[in-house]
């Protein structure tokens, strides 16, 4: 998968305070990403893997799995923490799915720290493709890294 990864801002540079932005995460899924994700997740809904089927049911073509996009939102949150604490830092994530995203176009996750209290940060996150917000109302709770 072609992965532009996060912007140059490193996890150490994240200011864990209300109003601070998270490093932006941009990913361009390649043509066969939905096939690999279907294999990894078990979700072979044909709208994700069968171009003809997708068009027959009125879609622009194969669309990305919503949970794959949610995994990018999770990445944006955990990579802001970074390091060994990253996987365990994510305590909660909720998203609403709106719109559709397709392979071979960038998906961009942006986020902001809403509050930090008792070592937990509440984040607001959105995933976009072009002008479309495909994940809205993203809310995450992460454990802030040590020494913050």
């Amino acid at each position: 998968m072609s992965d532009d990864a996060t912007t140059p801002e490193t996890p150490e540079a994240v200011r864990w305070e209300a109003g601070a932005a998270l490093p932006e995460l941009a990913v361009t899924p390649d043509k066969y990403l939905t096939v690999r994700y279907a294999g990894a997740s078990g979700d072979f809904n044909p709208i994700h893997v069968d171009e003809e089927f997708a068009q027959q049911v009125g879609l622009p073509g194969r669309i990305l799995h919503g949970l794959w996009t949610m995994a990018q939102v999770a990445r944006a949150a955990t990579e802001a923490v970074g390091g060994d604490e990253a996987p365990g830092s994510l305590r909660r994530l909720e998203v609403a799915f709106r719109g559709m995203a397709v392979p071979e176009h960038p998906v961009v996750v942006t986020g902001e720290i809403k509050a930090v209290e008792d070592g937990l940060a509440t984040l607001s996150l959105t995933a976009r493709q072009g002008k479309a917000r495909v994940v809205r109302g993203g809310r995450a709770v992460v454990r802030v890294p040590e020494a913050n």
């Binding site: 998968m1 992965d3 990864a5 990913v27 990403l33 690999r36 994700y37 294999g39 990894a40 997740s41 794959w68 995994a71 990018q72 990445r75 955990t78 990579e79 060994d84 990253a86 996987p87």
Partner: peptide, 17 residues
């Protein structure tokens, strides 16, 4: 191996995975 496969599919590059 499934954890590695899933991590690759979603772009999780942290070595812990």
């Amino acid at each position: 191996e499934k954890i590695r496969e899933y991590a690759r599919a979603v772009g999780e590059t942290n070595p812990l995975h």
